[in-house]
Design a protein around this nucleic acid. Structure first.
Length: 747
DNA sequence: AACCGTACTC
C-alpha cells in the first residue's frame, strides 16, 4: 500500500490538489487533518508525535477533460431525474461509463447524500465484492458521509468491512488524507469493525492508527472493550492508554466495563479494587453504574453482606441506588428462597421514590414461580401492569416457565399465545421453557412439536434445548433416542456440556446400565469437562439403589478428594441407600456427622430414616428421629406426616396418628393414598365408623383407590344396614376401578 | 456501561 502511495505521489501530486479544488471548492489542507482535532472525539498525541508517520498520499485517477464532462453530465442527470430508477438514468451513458467515472461522481454528490448512496448501491451491485473499485468507492463514500451523517458512514464502513475485511481498513486509511475526512471516521471504522464482529481487526486498528497519531475516542474503544472476552478486555484496558502514551484516557463507562467483566468471571475482588482506584488514580469518580455493577457481582456470588456494605458506601457518596441496584439484591434474596424479603425490598424502593422497572417485576415473578406460589405471581403481574409497565419477553418466559413447572401446560401455552399477540418475538429460551415443560410431563410428542415450531420460526435450538429433550427421552427410558439426538446436536456444531452429560449419565443409570454411565463420566473428563456434584450424586444413587454401598462410598470419597462439595441431595442419596440396605445405624451416624459438620439435613434426610424405622415397626426410634428433626429446626414436610401417620396406624397408636393428621391438615398438607388406607383401617379397628367413612369418601373424591378389604368392609356395613343401593354402587366402583387399574397396568 | 428468563442429582 505504501509503495503504491509513493508511486502515485510522484506522478500526480499537483493534479490531486487541482482536482480537489475543483470538486470541493476549497484547497486540500496540507497537514494531516487529524492534527487540528484534539478537542473532538479523536486526538493527536503530541507526546508520541515524533514517531508519527504521515497518512499515505493517494490520488484518484485523474479525469481527462472528456471524462470530467461525462461526470458532470452524469451527476446533473442524477440530480434532475432523482425520482427515476437509477438504471434508466444511467442507461444513456451506456458503455462509456467506467468505474472511475462513478468514483469521480461521488464527491460531486457530497451535498446530496441520498443520491450518493443510491449511486454507490448501484455501483456495488455492478461490481460485487471483492472488487478493489467497490472497496475504494465505499471508503470514499464513508469519508464523504462521516461528518454529515455518522450513522450512514458507519453503515457504509460495515458494508466495506464485511466485503473486504483488513484490506478495506487499509483502503479507508489510504483514502483518508485525500478526502480530508474528519478523523472521527476512524471512530466509526472501529465501531463498524466491532459491529461486524471483527474484534481482532478493531484492536489492530487501534494500534495501527497510533502510528499515524490518531487516537480513537474512549467511547469507540468502549464498544470494543465491551465485546472482548474478559481476558482480552482486561489486557486492552491496561494496554490502550499505555500504548497511546496517555492519549487515550478511559472514562467511567470504560471502568464500568472492566468492573463488569471481572464480576462476570467471579473476580469481584479485583473489580472492587478497580472501583476503588477510579477516583484517586484516574480522577474519574465511580458512578451509580459502577456501584450497581459491583453490587450485582457480589449478589451473584451470594455475598449479601458485601452488597449491602456497598449500598451504604454509595449512599455516603451521594449516589442514589436505581432499579438495577435494587434488582440485584432482590434476585439474590429470591435465589436464597427469601421471596418475601425480596418483596419487602420492592416496597422499600417504591417508598423511597425509585420506580421499579420490568426487570424488577420479572425477578419477583420468577421468585414466586420458583416457590410455586402462582397466586402471588398473578398479584405481581397485576401490580406491574398497574405501574404502567408491560411484561417483556423475559417476563413472559418466567411466567411460562413457572406454569410449566407446575404442570399447567394449557395455561403456559395460553400465556405464550398472549406473548405472541403482544407482538413479542419468541426466542429459543422461551421455546426451551415450553419444551422442557412437555418433557417433564413425559409428553415427548408435544415437546418435539414445539421444537419443530421453533425451527419453522428460524430459531436455532441451543444446548439447553437439546439437554431438555434428551433428558425427556432418557426419562422415558429411551436412552437410545437421546444418544441419537445428541449426535444430531453435535453435527450442528454444538457441544455437550456438563448438564447434558449428567442427564445422559442419569438416563443410563435409570436404565440399569451403571457401567456405561461410569464410562460416560470418563468420556466427559476426556472431553475436558469436569464431573460435578450432579454427576457424582447421580452415580452414587445408582450404586445405592443396586445395593452396592461400597462403590457409592468410594464415589463420595472420590468427589471429596477432588474438592467437590457434596450437596444435601448427595447425603440424602447416601442416607436412602443405607436405609434400603438396612444400615440404619450407619444412617443415624451419617445424620449426626452431617449436623456436626454443618451440612444442614432437610426433611428428606430425616424422612428416609423415619420411614425405615417405622417399617421396622420401631415407632420409638421413629419418634426420636422426629424429635431430633424438630430440635434442629427442620420443618416437617407432607412426607414426614404421611410416614408418621402410617407408622403410628400400623403400630396401633391411633391417638398419635390422629394428632399428626390434624396437624398436617392445619398446615395445608394432604394424606397420601397409603396414609388414607392406614388411617381408615386403624379407625375401623377402633370402631370409629363415622370418621372412617368420612375419610373413605374423601380419598375417593381425590381419585385415590382404597384397598380391596376396605371396600369390602364398607360394602358389608351397607349390607348389614340394608343400604342396598349404596352397597351395590360400591361393588360397581370396585369393579370399575379394578378394570381401570388393569388397563393402566397394561399400557 | 450495569438488573430479569431455558437444561442435569434424592
Amino acid at each position: 500500500m505504501l509503495l503504491r502511495a509513493a508511486a502515485r505521489k510522484k506522478k500526480t501530486k499537483h493534479s490531486v490538489a487541482t482536482l480537489f479544488l475543483a470538486l470541493h471548492g476549497r484547497p486540500l489542507t496540507s497537514s494531516s487533518s487529524s492534527s487540528s482535532s484534539s478537542s473532538s472525539s479523536s486526538a493527536l498525541v503530541d507526546s508520541i508525535a515524533t514517531s508519527i508517520r504521515p497518512f499515505p498520499d493517494y490520488s484518484p485517477r485523474k479525469p481527462s477533460l472528456r471524462d470530467a464532462d461525462l461526470v458532470r453530465d452524469l451527476t446533473a442527470a442524477l440530480r434532475q431525474r432523482r425520482s427515476d430508477p437509477l438504471a434508466r438514468v444511467l442507461r444513456p451513458f451506456g458503455p462509456r461509463l467506467r468505474p472511475d467515472h462513478l468514483l469521480w461522481a461521488l464527491p460531486l454528490l457530497r451535498s446530496d447524500l441520498p443520491l450518493l448512496l443510491s449511486l454507490l448501491a448501484w455501483f456495488r451491485s455492478c461490481h460485487p465484492a471483492p472488487s478493489p473499485a467497490t472497496a475504494e468507492a465505499t471508503a470514499i463514500a464513508a469519508h464523504l458521509a462521516a461528518a454529515a451523517s455518522p450513522c450512514t458512514a458507519r453503515r457504509l464502513l460495515r458494508d466495506g468491512l464485511r466485503d473486504g475485511g483488513r484490506r478495506f481498513i487499509d483502503e479507508v486509511i489510504y483514502t483518508y488524507k485525500h478526502w480530508c475526512s474528519h478523523p472521527s471516521v476512524f471512530d466509526l471504522l472501529l465501531l463498524a469493525a466491532v459491529d461486524v464482529g471483527r474484534l481482532d481487526d478493531a484492536r489492530a486498528l487501534f494500534h495501527h492508527l497510533l502510528t499515524y497519531g490518531v487516537v480513537v475516542s474512549a467511547d469507540a474503544c468502549n464498544s470494543l472493550l465491551a465485546r472482548l472476552p474478559v481476558g482480552d478486555m482486561l489486557a486492552a484496558f491496561a494496554d490502550f492508554p499505555q500504548s497511546s502514551g496517555g492519549g487515550l484516557r478511559w472514562n467511567a463507562k470504560s471502568y464500568n466495563i472492566a468492573i463488569h467483566g471481572l464480576c462476570r468471571v467471579g473476580n469481584v475482588g479485583d473489580a472492587r479494587r478497580i472501583l476503588a482506584d477510579m477516583e484517586p488514580k484516574a480522577g474519574v469518580p465511580p458512578d451509580v453504574v459502577s456501584y450497581s455493577t459491583l453490587i450485582n457481582g457480589y449478589c451473584s456470588i451470594g455475598e449479601l453482606r458485601e452488597a449491602m456494605e456497598l449500598m451504604r458506601e454509595m449512599a455516603l457518596k451521594g449516589l442514589k441506588p436505581n432499579p438495577f441496584t435494587y434488582n440485584s439484591i432482590m434476585a439474590l434474596l429470591c435465589k436464597a428462597g427469601r421471596v418475601v424479603g425480596a418483596e419487602r425490598v420492592l416496597s422499600y424502593m417504591v417508598r423511597h421514590g425509585v420506580a421499579p422497572d420490568a426487570a424488577v417485576y420479572t425477578t419477583m415473578i420468577d421468585g414466586f414461580c420458583k416457590m410455586g406460589n402462582l397466586s402471588a405471581v398473578y398479584r405481581m403481574v397485576d401490580e406491574m401492569r398497574k405501574s404502567g409497565l408491560v411484561p417483556d419477553a423475559i417476563t413472559y418466559t418466567s411466567l411460562i416457565h413457572g406454569l410449566c413447572r407446575s404442570g399447567k401446560m394449557v395455561e403456559a401455552h395460553n400465556v405464550f399465545e398472549e406473548m405472541l399477540s403482544e407482538g413479542l418475538n419468541p426466542d429459543e429460551i422461551v421455546y426451551t421453557a415450553l419444551i422442557d415443560g412437555y418433557c417433564k410431563l413425559g409428553r415427548m410428542t408435544d415437546a418435539f412439536r414445539a421444537h419443530n415450531e421453533m425451527l419453522r420460526r428460524g430459531l436455532t435450538p441451543n444446548v439447553v434445548t437439546y439437554t431438555s429433550l434428551s433428558d425427556g427421552l432418557c426419562k422415558q427410558r429411551d436412552v437410545e433416542a437421546a444418544n441419537e439426538l445428541l449426535h444430531e446436536m453435535c453435527s450442528k456444531g454444538l457441544e455437550l456440556n456438563v448438564c447434558t452429560y449428567n442427564s445422559l449419565i442419569n438416563g443410563l443409570c435409570k436404565a440399569g446400565n451403571i457401567e456405561q454411565a461410569m464410562k460416560t463420566m470418563v468420556e466427559m473428563e476426556a472431553a475436558g469437562l469436569k464431573p460435578d456434584v450432579y454427576t457424582y450424586t447421580t452415580l452414587m444413587d445408582a450404586y445405592c439403589k443396586s445395593g452396592e454401598m461400597d462403590r457409592a462410598r468410594g464415589l463420595l470419597q472420590e468427589m471429596l478428594d477432588k474438592g467437590i462439595r457434596p450437596s444435601i441431595v448427595t447425603f440424602n442419596v447416601l442416607m436412602h441407600g443405607m436405609c434400603m440396605s438396612g444400615m440404619l445405624e450407619d444412617g443415624k451416624r451419617l445424620l449426626d456427622w452431617m449436623v456436626d459438620k454443618n451440612f444442614m439435613p432437610n426433611a428428606t434426610t430425616y424422612n428416609s430414616l423415619m420411614k425405615h424405622y417405622s417399617l421396622d415397626k420401631n415407632m420409638k426410634a421413629t419418634t426420636e428421629i422426629y424429635r431430633g428433626m424438630c430440635s434442629q429446626g427442620v420443618v416437617p414436610d407432607q412426607n414426614t406426616y404421611n410416614i408418621l401417620i402410617t407408622g403410628h396406624c400400623k403400630a396401633r397408636n391411633m391417638k398419635e396418628a390422629c394428632y399428626f393428621h390434624n396437624e398436617m391438615i392445619s398446615k395445608g398438607f394432604s394424606l397420601s393414598e397409603g396414609s388414607y388406607n392406614a388411617l381408615i383401617r386403624g379407625l375401623l379397628r377402633k370402631k370409629k365408623f363415622m370418621e372412617a367413612w368420612g375419610l373413605f369418601d374423601e380419598m375417593r373424591a381425590k381419585g385415590f383407590v382404597a384397598e380391596h378389604d376396605i371396600y369390602n368392609t364398607f360394602i358389608d356395613m351397607n349390607y348389614t344396614e340394608e343400604n342396598m343401593e349404596a352397597a351395590l354402587a360400591l361393588c360397581d366402583e370396585v369393579v370399575e376401578r379394578c378394570l381401570v387399574e388393569t388397563k393402566v397396568d397394561e399400557t
